[in-house]
Design a protein around this nucleic acid. Sequence first.
DNA 1: CTGAAAGCGCTTACAG
DNA 2: CTGAAAGCGCTTACAG
Lengths: 340, 340
Amino acid sequence: MKRKVTLKQIARELDVSISTVSKSLRNSPEISEDTRQKVQAFAKLYNYKPNNIALSLKNKKTKTIGIIIPEIVHHFFATVISGIEQVANENGYNVIVCLSDESFDKEVINMEMLATGSIDGFIMSLSKETQLKKDFHHIVEVINQGMPVVMFDRITNDVFCDKVIIDDQMAAYEAVEYLINKGFKKVALVTTVDYVSVGKLRTEGYLKALRDNNMMAEEDMIVKIEDIDNCSVKIERLLEEQKPDAIFAVNELFAVTCIKLAAKMGVNVPDDLSVIGFTDGIISQFSSPAITTVSQNGIKMGRSAAKMLIDRLEMEEEDEHYRTEVIETHLVERESTPTL
Amino acid sequence: MKRKVTLKQIARELDVSISTVSKSLRNSPEISEDTRQKVQAFAKLYNYKPNNIALSLKNKKTKTIGIIIPEIVHHFFATVISGIEQVANENGYNVIVCLSDESFDKEVINMEMLATGSIDGFIMSLSKETQLKKDFHHIVEVINQGMPVVMFDRITNDVFCDKVIIDDQMAAYEAVEYLINKGFKKVALVTTVDYVSVGKLRTEGYLKALRDNNMMAEEDMIVKIEDIDNCSVKIERLLEEQKPDAIFAVNELFAVTCIKLAAKMGVNVPDDLSVIGFTDGIISQFSSPAITTVSQNGIKMGRSAAKMLIDRLEMEEEDEHYRTEVIETHLVERESTPTL
DNA sequence: CTGAAAGCGCTTACAG
DNA sequence: CTGAAAGCGCTTACAG
């Protein structure tokens, strides 16, 4: 077992000073061609690599990005990480991932843990609990300490920082209008509880689309789901009692659940019922029928967030001007809506 | 903007030495009750937190685990990360994630990048290209430097280290035997190319199950898929020409693809064709019909891998004895196989 | 051209 | 009880 070699050891071995070794390896012009070559050859032989931690301490930057997301076993978030990782890698950054598990406390703990030196900046999406509590002191604090934060998807307007979002309201509006234009008269909504920012915005888009088309929004046609695990009853009741001819669901789990429950009740999708989901994930692609959905390009969101963060990290002067980037969405037509 | 406060600043502020501040905060008995309280109060007021990087350099451990996996947009791997993260968190560790993108070079680069001080140990699953090349020098090197590595799922026997796997061959054997016991006579296999270790083992399990039941393994009943994106032709040909009554697919993507293609050809699952997949992911759960599958508990594998790594990191003496943990699997019966 | 010194932020054995 | 010193591994302004 040969342990990692340090400058000190090389210096001792070659009988020169540590400074000389360091400078040689960095090709400083101060050093004679001769010693430089000698040192470099030796370093190569022993596979010397500078210690990242020492560099971080010295340079006061770690070249790593902290990501805090609610969960990773969720296609959309995995997709965003993938995008972040691409850009991070291209720029010599690493990525450290923490999961809040939708818990406020875990989000706070993770942020504090990372904020003390481990990373240069954050990319995050709020936990449900944080959105419910509307307590963002941990984020504001980090920003005040001079550490940049980029929020994506589940954001809040109460914190000033860079953001990457989609236009949730508009995207929902377009999806619902698409259904209306197909001639559907009873378009139901399956959405989240209101405190989830994106759910709320998508709900608003739904309402607006109905309004603009002179259709009444009926309370009974809207199902708000708190917890995916026991949502079946509510959806079944919707299908039975309201008999909608189309459903707009604010995520793909809701959409596929609607389709499965409909099938169980003998309601055929798309013949008797059309369904549009949100987030173009693996479920939408592979469910039968494949689900028409609002695509939300996670890779792109991740790449964009990483770019914004790195730009800010490598900026010369501080810039108090924050940007919000809106990633475009579009409707992916598949089998859960009629083809003409 | 109030920047992070350091021991030095507290010391200056309170007009004591840095050592005194440090000791006070760590409740050293050397320090008088009086100054200790004073220092602690002040530190609390200014929200002092020791700098992780400085601690890492001093202690020569970073309390972070490096994860290298082929991709993250893959339910199984996301699941494993989630399990690792749980145990890491419980033990005060962070998790740094790198993706090899199935590329040997990226795997090597990422390992070297992390190995130089950033982390205390690795948890990894090999990229396809690495398995194809059978070049593991980067892993051996890291281990020789004294940095522990735990491999999971896609492993190799050519490297000595801790491992977490399932018994792929046995699990496949059981799945195929299950089909045979149901009375199916023409059980086809949809698998990966041979160099993917888990694919190969599952293939062997399939062959053994046939053999043990006095059934002939026919070449035409076995489809080996290199690349998911253009596998349709091969599977369609299998369905058309061989008309299997059951298919064992070595992952859920293959399984769902078989079902979708069968549906397109008017072959009903499970009435005309039974399908069993592998890896109990989101696709198996939500596809229609839901897919009977060999569950491979990613969370458990992740937890176990993290536990093994942390145990080794916190072990007093070096232990040259490596363990291989086998996580149990079981068949989850769903709609793609007959119910009786 | 080379090396000693200071410093990044911390801890701890040792001296006073 | 307090503080100076050494050290983790590195870089760089400065002296010689």
